[in-house]
Nucleic acid binder design. Structure first.
Length: 475
RNA sequence: CGGGGCGUAGCGUAGCCUGGUAACGCACCUGCUUUGGGAGCAGGGGAUCGCUGGUUCGAAUCCAGUCGCCCCGACCA
């Protein structure tokens, strides 16, 4: 009945089954474009709310820039064009008129935002500009998967402009740290923060930092990026200001984003053979109440259910009361487990007599009666316990699936199958990086922020190493 | 863009090899009995078999073309 392929049998199929059965998303008639269904969108709304509060708390404001961008703007930054042109969708007609200049549908907004910043920034007093936008973008992908890679996707993109290189770097790292904290505390998804190699950095950036998560099948997922764009875009778009020293200077800009891909990350970090397992902080319903319909339950049981629901909601807890008579309690148990609801409360005549409710945790599947006395407090504690247990579990999984290799043979052996992260010394050359990819399918995910001192030669060429990098097969 | 697979009721499939006018499970509708781990019985509605053309007395089935989707690779949040 569940129709969910076991994770161990075929992880990819399991993932697609969960997305579909839990009604997170569905395929649309447009190739590569998915419909985010209400249950999936509710997760996104929680992600938005929690992230947006963090952006505001760090001084950012929201704005909205247009979907369409004149093609000529894309052409202004050389590396940026090369990186994005192959994935761009074009608009050539409006109604029955052929357009004089083609428009691109934004794959990202650096160029349109850079153009506007050039108008707005005149003086050092105009800086910094700290703007974020919540938007959709389009990238013509050859291969798509729900949430992980779709032709159109939702994200936030922050774009900032600063007076100095130092300030831009501080901003870039501040956001990286913000993302990491968000992923770990809200999504219970541990991430490794670090810097990308030259070949993996954002098209047009001076430096790209990323957070990398490890999925349940041992593959890495880039969960967010923060780019220090240096003066590259400021020069291409003439974002100039007169400085404190009266000279005219180019601004220093950054951009950073996370997308609906995070939902895919949550699914693949916590899910199990029964379906989704959602961290309470982003779960659309943190608690589901299932009344047990016995005898005259509508007068004996239901009022208590409604009272508890009201009390929990008053305490800020998201509650679903499923008093639908069509489905049996057993059906509901299975259904809400499949949908990943963190905590289930069963309330029947026996519970009413005893002054208890029967609880079942999704993460550990532990079941226990809870006293109605102080129930709201108990449930708050339980949700917090589930949230931290999920993070601890995911951390333990990552540690079990992270190894260090000191020789090429060791590295290759470690990359067999679906291993997780492999830490190895690297000389910094793009050649070695490319060879590693060709021979093992593993890519350099990033070089962690607190990377230890290098004491061993490059895993590939045995030359002098510059850093210890984290490698993995990635999504 | 290479390799593979699939289009039959809302969903998942069988039937196709060996042509004879579409079947099963789930879902849905009605009624009754049920309900503490995906309820049971009875009755019922719903598909011109992706599309186009061809072969044939006759095509879901054979042939050709075409469109679309999924999976695995190379490229990417």
């Amino acid at each position: 009945m569940t129709e969910i392929t076991p994770r161990s049998e075929d992880f990819s199929k399991w993932y697609l089954d969960v997305v579909k059965r839990a009604e997170l998303a569905d395929y649309s008639p447009v190739k590569g474009c998915m419909v985010i269904r209400p249950y999936g969108y509710a997760i996104w709304e929680n992600i938005q709310r929690l992230l947006d509060a963090r952006f505001k708390a760090t001084g950012h404001v929201n704005a909205y820039f247009p979907l369409f961008i004149p093609e000529s703007l894309l052409m202004k930054e050389k590396d940026h064009v090369e990186g994005f042109a192959p994935q761009v969708a074009y608009v050539t007609r409006g109604g029955d008129e052929e357009l004089e200049e083609r428009l691109i549908v934004r794959p990202t907004s650096e160029v349109i935002i850079g153009t506007m910043y050039a108008k707005w920034v005149k003086s050092w007093r105009d800086l910094p500009v700290l703007i974020n936008q919540w938007a959709n973008v389009v990238r013509w992908e050859k291969v798509t998967r729900p949430f992980l890679r779709t032709t159109e996707f939702l994200w936030q993109e922050g774009h900032t402009a600063h007076e100095t290189a130092e300030e831009a770097e501080v901003e870039t790292l501040k956001i990286l740290a913000l993302y990491k904290e968000f992923c770990e505390n809200e999504l219970a998804m541990p991430v490794m923060d670090g810097i990308k190699s030259e070949s993996e950095k954002f098209a047009g950036a001076s430096r790209t930092y990323s957070i990398e998560a490890l999925m349940g099948d041992g593959r890495a997922l880039q969960a967010g990026t923060s780019h220090n764009l240096g003066q590259n875009f400021a020069k291409a778009f003439e974002i100039q200001f007169q400085g404190r020293d009266k000279t005219v200077q180019h601004a220093w800009t950054t951009s950073w984003g996370v997308s609906t891909r995070l939902i895919g990350g949550v699914i693949m970090t916590h899910g199990d053979d029964s379906g989704l397992v959602l961290p309470p902080n982003v779960a659309p319903h943190q608690v589901v109440i299932v009344p047990i319909p016995r005898g005259d339950w509508k007068t004996t049981v239901l009022p208590t259910c409604e009272k508890i629901k009201a009390e929990l909601e008053a305490a800020g807890i998201r509650v679903k009361l499923d008093a639908d008579e069509e489905n049996s309690p057993g059906w509901k148990f299975a259904e809400y487990e499949m949908r990943g609801v963190p905590l289930r409360l069963e309330i029947g005549p026996k519970d009413i007599e005893k002054g208890t409710v029967f609880s079942a945790r999704r993460d550990t599947r532990e079941k226990a009666p809870l006293s109605m006395e102080g129930l709201t407090t108990t449930i708050k504690e339980l949700l917090a316990a589930i949230q931290s247990n999920l993070l601890a579990r995911a951390r333990a999984f990552r540690e079990e699936h992270t190894s260090e290799a000191t020789t090429w043979d060791e590295f290759k052996a470690a990359m067999e199958g679906r291993p997780g992260f492999v830490i190895a010394s690297w000389c910094g050359s793009a050649d070695c990086e490319a060879q590693i990819k060709t021979e093992t399918q593993a890519t350099l995910r990033n070089i962690p922020m607190n990377s230890p001192k290098v004491d061993s030669p490059c895993i590939k060429c045995n030359g002098a190493s510059t850093a210890k990098a984290w490698f993995a097969k990635a999504y």
